[in-house]
């Protein structure tokens, strides 16, 4: 069962795209998308996210390389390949004067599927569009238009759904509604590939993360593994008495003062003890923090030494908590690393 779930539904090999003007948007991309996963593609503007999606969906011609969708080549066997795919584009593009019902039904027919009013109704209801089915698209709000685009992509019952910036310009409530819809689709076996600027979106939904920058796939990793291996942790110690400076005896810990001297922040890396994490699943964040210190001071636990050092220096601690860096921080650091 697990093996079937992991089989690639999209295989990308050596995919390169150079536009007419000479700009290379993709540089020999290799990527497998697993069946049934939510894959988030992150990257700054102009990184090549939309180009990659557009090639797979048939909107842009590749310069070289191969893409297979469910085993079908997107060029030589385009009919079969495209029949699996639903695409929600970034731009709010609609036939302004059509009704919601007509527009979604049109999308189904375009994919050669016979009429199925029951399915269209189910899609519209799931996206809270049923009451708007007779409305012309031009009369809808931006959020509703975005839902219509999703409904159109789902009209032909695709196995793979591409969401290019699905919640751009959408309010928080609607965004969370859409996440629910996407999760529901995944639960029904639909593979989801989304690009997003909202790291929160990827953090919330994705199973795996791909980071693309300047046309190169910088990293592909399970979200949790990525956050474990690249995430940095911070231990913040709330002090009983404020300090003007870090005591001499504690400088080796690389501490920084915060909160006007009322707090000391100890930053440590999770990577060196990542393998230990398997033993700590289900532990509280505090326990994680104590169990995974990265700075190994004199062969002992960094945090234990730090606490002992604080005690020796007469620094009283009234509270402490740990925080793991977010995907956004990981992403920014990855992109900046590459820039440097």
């Amino acid at each position: 069962m697990q093996e079937a779930r992991q089989a690639p539904v999209i295989e990308i090999q050596g995919l390169t795209k150079t536009y007419g003007g000479g700009f290379t948007a993709l540089k020999s991309i290799d990527l497998d998308i697993r069946r049934g996963e939510i894959f988030a593609l992150l990257g700054p503007n102009g990184a090549g996210k939309t180009t990659l999606i557009s090639i797979i969906c048939g909107l842009v011609n590749p310069s070289s390389g191969h893409v297979r969708v469910a085993g079908h080549d997107i060029i030589s066997d385009f009919r079969a390949a495209r029949s699996y795919i639903g695409l929600v584009p970034q731009e709010l593009t609609n036939e302004a004067f059509s009704t919601v019902w007509d527009s979604v039904s049109f999308s189904r027919g375009l994919f050669g599927k016979p009429r199925n009013p029951a399915h269209i109704e189910q899609v519209l209801r799931s996206l809270s569009l049923w009451d708007k089915r007779k409305n012309r698209l031009i009369t809808l709000s931006g959020g509703m238009k975005r839902r219509v685009l999703i409904a159109k992509a789902l009209a032909h019952e695709p196995d793979i759904l591409f969401l290019d910036e699905p919640t751009a310009g959408v309010d928080v409530e609607l965004r969370r509604d859409m996440w629910e819809v996407v999760r529901g689709l995944r639960d029904n076996g639909v593979t989801i590939i989304l690009t997003t600027h909202y790291i929160e979106e990827a953090e919330e939904m994705a199973d795996r993360i791909g980071v693309i920058r300047s046309g190169e796939l910088v990293l592909v990793e399970e979200k949790h593994a990525l956050m474990r291996s690249l995430g940095r942790k911070e231990l913040t110690l709330q002090l009983r008495q404020p300090l003007d400076e870090v005591p001499e005896s504690l400088t080796r810990f690389g501490l920084t003062l915060a909160d006007d001297g009322h707090a000391l922040v100890y930053t440590y890396d999770d990577a060196s003890t990542a393998s230990d994490s398997e033993n700590h699943d289900g532990d509280s964040p505090e326990m994680d923090g104590h169990g995974r210190q990265g700075h190994d001071v004199e062969g002992q636990s960094g945090i234990a030494k730090l606490l002992a050092g604080l005690d020796n220096a007469g620094v009283g601690v009234k509270d402490l908590y740990t925080r793991q860096s977010s995907l956004e921080e990981i992403f920014v650091s990855l992109v900046q690393e590459r820039k440097e």
Partner: peptide, 15 residues
Amino acid sequence: PRFTGSIYEILSAPI
């Protein structure tokens, strides 16, 4: 559809 951008739907369909 080219002007509105909705041509994407036709070009990405199995046609």
